[in-house]
Design a protein around this nucleic acid. Structure first.
Lengths: 206, 206
DNA sequence: CGAAACGTTGATCGTCATCAATGACGGTGG
DNA sequence: CCACCGTCATTGATGACGATCAACGTTTCG
C-alpha cells in the first residue's frame, strides 16, 4: 500500500484502523468516505431486513476489500460489515481510491478482477441455495470453512444459509446421523473424494 | 461503438450479430472470444444444473453487456445466454474489449459501474429470495416486468424464481385470490402505492 | 476460609403441530 | 397436443414449548 500512498496526487495517507470483535466497519445506509482492505481478522457482510432477520452474503478475510462498491458508485452502503474477530484494516480515503482507479492500471485491473470474482461467487451460490436443500448448502459452507481454516460462529453460519439456529442445529444432526459429520462437533468426517461424491449425489437428484 | 472501433490499436471491427429466439449467444463452459452488447431484444442468463434444473440470474435487454466477466478474467463461461426474443447484438472481439478497458478511461468507468450494479442487484435479490416466500419474489418480478414493459415467458419466470411452472401457476392463483393480480392474466391490479404497501407487509412479518 | 448448594443464563435437543412448496395423476378446454 | 388446474399425499423447513446440561457467579453453612 505504501507505494500507492506515495504516488497519490492527493497525498492523503492510508491509515490502519482496528476494530474490536462485534463492532462495525460499515453500517447499512451510511455514506462512507473510506474503502477498507482487511489486514487481519474476519468480517461478515450482511443485510438487515426489515423483519429483523439478517442475511450474510459473504465473509471477508485477509486481503479482501470492502466499501469498494460505494467507492465506485457514490451510493449508500448496501450492507453492514461487522468484525467477527478482532480486525485491523487499511482505511483508504475515497479520493485516493478514485485516483488509483484512474491512474494506476494495475490497481484498476485488480479491482475489475475482484468484482468479477464476486459476481461469479454470488451467482453460483444463489443458484445452489435456490435449487438444493439446506443440507447441501450447509455442507458446502462447512467444506469452505475447513478449507480456509477459519472459524465462524454458528449464528453467522445460520444467517449465511438464511435459516435460524434451531434449523441449523437440526440440519447438523441430520448430517451426523448420516455419518457425514463427526459425531460431536461439526467437522467433516470424510475424505475430499467422499465429500465430492456426496455433493454430486445431491446434484443428480431431480 | 464506431468511435471505439476506429481508435482500436487492433483495428478489429465490431460486428452486429443476430440471433433467432431460442438460440444461444453463449454456452456454459465455452471459451469465448467476444463480448456482446445487446442492441435489440431480450436474453436470459442462466445456469444449467446437473439435475437438469435451470436457474436464471437475470434478463438482459437493450444496452446491457454479457461475456464481460469472461472477457476480464479468461475463464470458461459461467452461464448460458439465450435469446428470448429475436436479438441483435454488437459482438466485440476480446482483443478490442481489453484494449478499451486499458486505454479508454470512460469505457473502463462504465464497466466498473456496470459490475457494481450487477453485484448490488444480485445481492439484494439473493437476500429476499432467501428470506421471503415465493409469493413475494413473484410479485417483485411482475412489478419489474410491468415497469420495464417487457414480456417474459412463464417458464422463464419460473426458472428465475427457482420453481416449477406448476408451482408458478399455483402462486399466481394465490395472488389472484387475494385480488392482487387481475382475475385472468398476470397483471398487477394495484396502484404503485398499494403494491408497496403489500410488499411492506411481507417484509414486516417475522 | 472453603466446599457444597443454589440460581441464572445460554446453548442444545426432543417432540408435536404447522406451513410452504412440491410431485404425481388425472381431467378439462383450447 | 399442450397449457392449465383440482386434488391428495408428501417433503422440507419452521415455530413453539419444555427438558436438559454445562458454565459461572453467588450464597450459605460447617
Amino acid at each position: 500500500m505504501e507505494q500507492f500512498t506515495a504516488s497519490s496526487a492527493e497525498g492523503e495517507a492510508v491509515a490502519i484502523k482496528t476494530f474490536a470483535a462485534g463492532t462495525r466497519l460499515i453500517r447499512q445506509g451510511d455514506t462512507i468516505s473510506h474503502v477498507y482492505i482487511i489486514r487481519e481478522g474476519i468480517t461478515k457482510c450482511y443485510i438487515e431486513e426489515d423483519n429483523g432477520k439478517d442475511y450474510i452474503f459473504e465473509f471477508l478475510g485477509k486481503g479482501e476489500i470492502t466499501g469498494d462498491l460505494e467507492g465506485i458508485r457514490k451510493e449508500k452502503c448496501l450492507c453492514n460489515i461487522e468484525a467477527i474477530t478482532h480486525v485491523t484494516a487499511y482505511a483508504i480515503p475515497h479520493t485516493l481510491f478514485s485516483w488509483l482507479l484512474v491512474n494506476n492500471t494495475e490497481f484498476n485491473r485488480l479491482m475489475l478482477e475482484e468484482l468479477v470474482i464476486r459476481i461469479r461467487q454470488t451467482c453460483i451460490r444463489a443458484s445452489y441455495q435456490q435449487l438444493y436443500p439446506v443440507e447441501y448448502a450447509l455442507l458446502r459452507l462447512l467444506a469452505l470453512e475447513a478449507e480456509q481454516d477459519i472459524v465462524i460462529p454458528k449464528k453467522d453460519m445460520a444467517s449465511y444459509l438464511g435459516i435460524t439456529i434451531r434449523s441449523f442445529n437440526r440440519t447438523l444432526k441430520e448430517l451426523r446421523s448420516k455419518n457425514i459429520l463427526d459425531p460431536q462437533g461439526m467437522n467433516i468426517d470424510l475424505s475430499r473424494k467422499q465429500l465430492e461424491e456426496i455433493l454430486r449425489r445431491f446434484e443428480d437428484m431431480g
